[in-house]
Amino acid sequence: MTLLVKDKDVVVPGEALASGMDYLPTSGTYREGDKVVASRLGLVQVDGRLIRIIPVSGKYLPKRGDVVVARVTNITLNGWVCDINSAYSSLLGMKEGVSDFIARGSDLTRYYNIGDSLMAQIINVTSQNMVDLSAKGPGLRKLGEGRIIYVNANKVPRIIGKAGSMVSMIKDATNCRISVGQNGVIWLQGTPAAELVAVSAIRRIEADSHVSGLTEQVKAFLDKNKVVA
């Protein structure tokens, strides 16, 4: 009947969160007898009767609909094999890769070569975690010169902010182009000095993502490190 922890508490796997049938276990939790128990390290979120864990660590697990930054690692007969910073590689099919007509036997490196990065959307994930990508859609494109950094994929929502507020703030302050993938891969393009400021701002968000009042802190940081255009 009672909650054994507070909202936003850090809990470890195996820790009892609530007793009684009033609370329901959702993601990151399970029921053991009459208790709701955490199954991941993270922050508790109590939403009415629902208890869930907001994970703070863990590798990216591909999810349908996610927009990710992918890197081409191989070219096959059917398309491009891409690395998406996860345990599973993904396939960008020929049809989903470009809208041009590709003649049989033509050179696929004309579109994406090995080592190229692109914004892509995950259009399908099978039960065995085989991943299909698409590069057709708004905002999906080949990424040109720039800098790529890897962050904890669980911190991506915080880096993007509510309706993109956080990342827009960094973009405006540094004049960088920034693409954030749900897989924790971030592409930046700007002047070298601006890129560095943007990277340290992102690193800050990543390190302090569980702190409240983060937006103000990042704003202060960006104000202090104004990049002169």
Partner: peptide
């Protein structure tokens, strides 16, 4: 393992 964010019943 817990720090790596894996799903665990307990420690």
């Amino acid at each position: 393992l817990a720090d790596a964010g894996l799903t665990m019943k307990d420690l």
